[in-house]
Design a protein around this nucleic acid. Structure first.
Length: 503
RNA sequence: GGGCGUGUAGCUCAAUGGUAGAGCAGUGGCCUUUUAAGCCAUUGGUUCAGGGUUCGAGCCCCUGCACGCUCACCA
């Protein structure tokens, strides 16, 4: 370990403590209450008019220290909150005061035993009779000191450097309590979604992450290798093809919450690995899935934020069902002036866009062009929750066509805060049509090209046994967390976001 | 991958091309009992790395690295 000067001083303190027969890393503690628990206990006793002292032992990190001659104030912080410690030479003796003063630093985990009381200024505090080092910190926390003034935490400096915060998330969490709240919100979000689906009779399942054939999305996969089997395997890019196999097996309502891996660019809304929720529901179609979606997301919002109206940056967003429903065609027509239904070929749509002065990539398919119109014109207008529905067939190879129009599929995407949140469709269950779609996507049986999606013959075999009509749904849990925790980059809702290696 | 920006003490930040600084933290001292971010003194630097221009570079130029924003990519 490379130690800087500040750290060397603390290591010397460790040696000094050991020389004095004090273990700076004791194995056991006597902690009886959290800081918040101790305050609660005292508040209740106070309200009941009790006169018996409230005796507790608390533990936590030292976050501030104020030495005033023969009395001494400090704050400790644990996962539940903060508590002021009050120490006097009367109880601790000269030696105890010296010990604390000489051996204890900001950031150390300490234990204090005493009785709760209120200071003259009204702050609930612990009158310390005994203390103990629980774990000596060698490295100073990156924000040196917090102070509580009138019940508010005042920060003298805050760890703000994004790189340090992400690379040393432990330090970020230790020093920025609101970051801990983000991850509590994330856990609540996942639990809310899980509870919601469980209550609808869904079965939570786990399907392979290591897959011999990847599919269910258009993304480049990570490749790995099984040594003994001498077989290349892919980290999954979606759960879709495995979950739908389960409907063939008459698990009628299934969902999975887990990690997907996509070997693509990193951005404020993309991380190489991210958490996805997918569910599949037999005897449902995409209209039914829309209803479930708006109920599920608004339920999660209630569980996490306490209401269905949330603040996201400058936007106040009302997630109360029902959400606005807008066909993709109408949405694009309204925002860009182009009617995609009037331009059914790649060339025709590209010409229409050129006529409006919109640049297109040479050779772009109609689906890609529509996607571009959606991203550039429609998406920025979708602040309030909106279901865009009815998508072109050629960018949706797993979705079922509208009965009256085979070029349009029963697919929708949910948008909130100008961000794609989820993607769902009435699932294609015609095995012959599915095979045709795969072939149209350029996945032929002989293809050895890794960049291409290989034909999944086992999936077609499953379909050929018969899959009930069903609706399917996928949503990025990270993005839902961003929304509910009011964080604007995915890195803020990932504990350990991907960064380049150090050095 | 492209463009723009940032990188200075443990943390937050200063510094016209002319002796690298402040606050907090640290160290030493003062401080006789419910507030004090107290007072005095003091330590601490490979200015991201490597080249170049210059009498002289934290600052200007080049290359590289990392991060941020953005564009591209992205069923």
């Amino acid at each position: 370990m490379n130690l800087n000067d500040l750290e060397k001083i603390r290591v010397e303190k460790i040696e000094r403590m050991r020389a004095a027969g004090i273990e700076p890393y004791p194995t056991r503690t006597e902690v009886s209450h959290s800081t918040a628990g101790a305050v609660d206990l005292f508040t209740q006793a106070e309200a009941a008019g009790g006169t018996d002292p409230v005796e507790v032992t608390v533990g936590g990190r030292l976050r501030s220290m104020r030495l005033m001659g023969k009395i001494f104030f400090a704050h400790i912080e644990d996962g539940a909150g903060r508590l002021q410690l009050f120490m006097r030479v009367n109880e601790l003796g000269e030696e105890g005061m010296e010990r604390f003063r000489n051996d204890f630093d900001l950031g150390d985990f300490v234990q204090a035993t005493g009785s709760m009381f209120r200071t003259r200024s009204g702050e609930i505090s612990l009158h310390v009779k005994a203390f103990k080092m629980l774990a000596k910190a060698i490295t100073p926390l990156p924000a040196a000191k917090d102070e509580v003034v009138d019940g508010q935490v005042v920060r003298h400096a805050t760890l703000t450097d994004a790189e340090t915060r992400y690379r040393q998330r432990y330090a970020d969490l230790a020093v920025n309590a609101e970051v801990r709240d983000v991850f509590r919100a994330r856990a609540k979000t996942v639990k809310a979604v899980r509870d919601f689906l469980d209550n609808l009779g869904f079965l939570e399942v786990e399907t392979p992450i290591l897959q011999p054939i990847y599919g269910g999305a258009a993304a480049r996969p990570f490749v790995t290798h099984h040594n003994q089997l001498k077989q290349d395997l892919y980290l999954r890019i979606s759960f879709e093809l495995y979950l739908k196999r389960l409907l063939v097996g008459m698990l009628d309502r299934v969902y999975e919450i887990g990690r997907d891996f996509r070997n693509e660019g990193v951005s404020f809304k993309h991380n190489p690995e991210f958490t996805q929720i997918e569910f599949y529901m037999a005897y449902a179609d995409y209209y039914k899935v829309m209803e479930i979606t708006e109920q599920m997301v608004s339920y999660a919002a209630q569980q996490v934020t306490g209401g269905m109206v949330i603040q996201f940056g400058e936007h106040t967003i009302d997630l109360t069902p029902p959400w606005r429903r807008l066909t993709l065609r109408d949405g694009i027509l309204e925002t860009s002036g182009i009617d995609i239904d009037a331009h059914l070929t790649d060339e025709s749509l590209a010409e229409a866009m050129h006529a409006k002065g919109i640049k297109t990539k040479p050779g772009a398919s109609r689906g890609k062009l529509i996607d571009a119109l959606l991203s550039d014109y429609l998406e920025p207008t979708l602040v309030q929750p909106t279901f865009l529905y009815n998508y072109p067939r050629d960018i949706s190879p797993l979705a079922k066509s509208k009965p009256e129009n085979p070029q349009v599929v029963e697919r929708f995407e949910g948008y909130v805060a100008c961000m794609e949140l989820c993607n769902a469709f009435t699932e294609l269950n015609d095995p012959l049509d599915q095979e045709q779609r795969f072939l149209e996507m350029g996945r032929d049986y002989e293809s050895e090209d890794e960049e291409r999606h290989p034909m999944d013959e086992d999936y077609l075999r499953a379909m050929s046994y018969g899959m009930p009509p069903c609706g399917g749904f996928g949503m990025g849990m990270d993005r839902l967390t961003m929304l509910l925790a009011n964080r604007h980059t995915i890195r803020e809702v990932l504990l350990f976001p991907h960064l380049r290696s150090e050095e």
